[in-house]
């Protein structure tokens, strides 16, 4: 049984069809990459997977359960985390507090009225914070205000926030967007170590990242799926070359 499955998802905004009947099947502990030119519908497709958008038609299944209309909070609680293309961190909180927020969601559930509890007693949550900050290499910066981080550090914190929900599926929307080649390599290395424990679906423009990581690649164009296969199959695909790779290479 696939871990995460999309069955012919379609999303219309008024007259515009952003995603048109795209299906996807993700096996556990694999890396799936979603590529395509700008405006191909990758981000919209991702947002439907994460429960941020309800599809106009089609369904999303997680472990065989239909999760189409659950909404982002419950999808996150089930174990699907998304990192955002445009960094969504908590600017006024410290780095450690940033990571604590999703960690609290992972350990406390969607809602808990522990208004008289002490944060220091949430040991599980603090353990998660330590682990993810180490993973993304931000332990040294734990006390800094998130707003004061450099761009690359903010991107890593973005990843840490997704990891701290302890997800089974990690949806990464252009994790290397705007990063230097060196910073990109750090991210790729990190994803290389993470893939042993979590299923990854990634939207990415950097083809080196895609071909280096992905077990399977899905190509979208104008909201439709035009190809699917392994890295070498995609490289050899004439249609993909015409539509996309040719333009980049």
């Amino acid at each position: 049984m696939p871990l995460l499955e999309a069955r012919s998802l379609t999303k219309r905004f008024g007259g515009l069809v952003a995603v048109d009947g795209v299906s996807l099947s993700v096996e556990p502990l694999t890396v799936t990459a979603l590529i395509g030119p700008n405006g191909a519908g990758k981000t919209t497709f991702f947002r439907m997977l994460a429960g941020e958008f309800e599809p106009t038609s089609g369904d999303v299944y997680f472990k065989g359960e239909r999760i189409t209309q659950l909404g982002v909070t419950r999808v996150a609680q089930l174990g699907i985390a998304k990192s955002f293309q445009v960094t969504q961190i908590f600017p006024k909180l410290s780095v450690a507090e940033n990571a604590l927020i999703p960690a609290l969601a992972a350990t406390r559930g969607p809602f808990k009225l522990d208004a008289f509890g002490a944060v220091s007693r949430s040991r599980d949550a603090h353990a998660i914070v330590e682990r993810v900050l180490t993973q993304v290499g931000l332990s040294e910066r734990r006390a800094a205000r998130a707003d004061d981080l450099s761009y690359g550090e903010k991107r890593r914190l973005e990843l840490a926030l997704a990891l701290a929900t302890e997800p089974e599926v990690l949806l990464l929307d252009e994790p290397s967007a705007g990063m230097s080649p060196e910073e990109t390599r750090t991210i790729v290395d990190l994803l290389g170590t993470l893939r042993a424990g979590v299923t990854i679906v990634i939207v990415e423009h950097d083809m080196d990242v895609v071909f280096g990581l992905a077990d399977r690649i899905v190509v979208l164009q104008d909201g439709r799926q035009i190809a699917e296969g392994t890295a070498s199959e995609i490289r050899a695909n004439k249609r993909v070359q015409d539509a996309y790779l040719g333009g980049v290479a």
Partner: peptide, 17 residues
């Protein structure tokens, strides 16, 4: 406080905002 700072992320983290 997380909701004050970024309600979108607070929801995406799994909190019932």
């Amino acid at each position: 406080r997380a909701i004050l700072d970024n309600p979108i992320r607070a929801a995406a983290a799994g909190h019932d905002v």
